[in-house]
Simulated assay, not measured.
Amino acid sequence: MRHLLPMVDGSPSILESLEGALSSLEESEKSMLETSPSMLKAFLIEQSEVLETSIEDLEQAYLRLSSRAAKEVEVLVNLDSAPLPSKSPLSDYEKSVEEKEWYRQEVLKPLAIAHLRRRRMQTENLSYEEVASWEPTEEYLNEAMQWVEPPSDFKPKKRLVRTTATRPEAERQGILVKEITTLVNKAQGRGITKTEILRSLGKDTSRWRTSCEEVLKYMLANRRIVRDHGQRKGIRYYLPIYAEHLREQEFHRQVFESLRTGPRTRTAIVKTTCYSNPKGHAKVKSALALLEREGLIRSIGNKWEMVV
C-alpha cells in the first residue's frame, strides 16, 4: 500500500504537509477541527486544493496525526495495514455530467447516425449494406443530434441540485448547508447575516463567501430559510417559522417609510400600505402605536410624522 511517508525525492509527504498546515492554526481553530466534523471537512477540502492531494489521503493523514497525539496504538496499527481508500462516490453534479455524456454518446449519437443512414437509403436509393459502414462528418452528425427524438426513457433525469463547477465546490457547499442550518437555528428570531455565518465558521474569505452566496440562494429557493430586507445592518436569515414575524417587520417598515415625504393621516397611510378596510386600519393603528412607543414617530393633530 502507499504510505504517507516522506517521498524519496525529498519533497514533503502528505503527512508532513498536513502537519505543517495544522501547526499554523490557532489553538481555538485546532479545537474547532476536533469538535466539528464539518469544519474538519472544510479544512481538509482547502488543503486538498492547496496540496493537490485527494481528500481521502488527507483524511487518513489527519487520522494518523490525531492518533499519534492521543497515542492510540490500535488505530495506528490498523492504518498501517489498511488498504487505500476506495473511490469516493460521485457528487450530484458529477452524476449529472456523466449521465449527460452517456446520453450524448450512447443514445443521441447512434440514433443520429441511424437516421442519417436511413435518409441516404431513401434519397439515394441505396441498400443498408451500402450505408452500414458510412460515417457522417462531425458537423453533419452534431446537427442531426439536435433534432433526433429518442424515447423518453433514455432522457437524463432532471436533478434538483445546486449547480457547482467542481467537486471541492460541491463539498464546500454541502458543508455550508449543514452549518448554516445549525447557525440559523441557533440565532432564532434574531436572525444572522452572511458575514456572521462566515465569521462563526472562521471562513470569511472570498472563496467561501462566494460559495455561501450560492448556498443561501439555494436554501431560500427551497424555503429552508427566509430573509428580511436588510434595511440596517445587512440581510438577515431566519428559519421559516419566523416568516410571519418578518412580514410584520416589513409592514412596520412600510408604515414608517410612508411618512418620509411628510406628515400623513392614518387613512392616507392605510391606502399606501394595505387594504382600506377595518382590518387594514387596525393593522396600521397597531403599527403606529409601536413606532410611537419606540420614539420613531409622533402625532400632530390627526397626522403622523417622523421624529427627526
Rank of each mutant, 00 (worst) to 15 (best):
Y103V: 00
D228R: 05
R264N: 09
L246T: 07
T261W: 06
R118A: 13
L246K: 05
E213Q: 15
Q254K: 07
V215F: 11
F256E: 06
K157G: 09
L141W: 02
L160P: 07
T163C: 05
D9G: 05
A187G: 13
E196S: 03
V107A: 08
R227L: 01
R298N: 01
F251T: 01
V97H: 10
E138I: 00
M39R: 06
G295L: 01
S96Q: 06
R266S: 03
C212P: 02
V307T: 02
P263F: 14
D80S: 04
A61I: 11
R209I: 07
E213D: 15
D9Y: 06
S96G: 05
S36T: 02
L15F: 09
F251L: 08
F256G: 02
E171S: 12
L201A: 01
S258N: 05
L216H: 04
L5I: 10
K109D: 06
R162N: 02
R207K: 04
R120W: 10
I45Q: 00
Y242H: 04
E124S: 07
V107T: 10
G301F: 13
L76T: 15
E305T: 09
S286R: 06
W208P: 04
T123K: 15
K155G: 09
Q146C: 07
P156S: 04
L290P: 02
T164C: 11
E248A: 02
A114S: 13
E179A: 03
L201D: 00
K233Q: 08
D9F: 12
R68T: 06
T261F: 07
S48L: 04
G189Q: 10
L22C: 12
L22Y: 05
S67P: 09
R104P: 01
S96N: 08
M1F: 14
G10N: 11
L65F: 13
E16M: 14
P89D: 09
H3L: 14
S88E: 15
E19W: 09
V131N: 11
G295W: 02
M32P: 01
K186M: 07
Y242Q: 00
R117T: 12
V77M: 15
P83L: 10
V148M: 08
N185Y: 14
L141T: 09
R232S: 06
L76P: 06
V97W: 08
L160T: 14
V226H: 00
V270Q: 04
L4V: 14
Y103N: 05
P240D: 01
L176T: 04
F154Q: 12
I269D: 00
E106R: 11
A187L: 02
S286A: 07
W304C: 04
V8H: 13
T123I: 15
W208T: 05
L25A: 03
K186F: 06
P156L: 13
T273D: 11
E169G: 10
S133R: 12
R172G: 00
R223T: 03
V107D: 03
E129L: 15
S152R: 15
I197D: 00
S11Q: 14
E248S: 11
R266M: 11
I269A: 03
L116A: 10
E213H: 14
D228H: 11
T193F: 08
G10Q: 10
R293L: 11
E292L: 04
R120H: 13
G189N: 13
R227H: 09
I113N: 09
A287L: 05
V184D: 01
K109A: 08
L58S: 02
A187W: 01
K283G: 02
R162D: 13
E130S: 11
E130F: 12
R2N: 12
R253Q: 13
A282Y: 04
R117K: 09
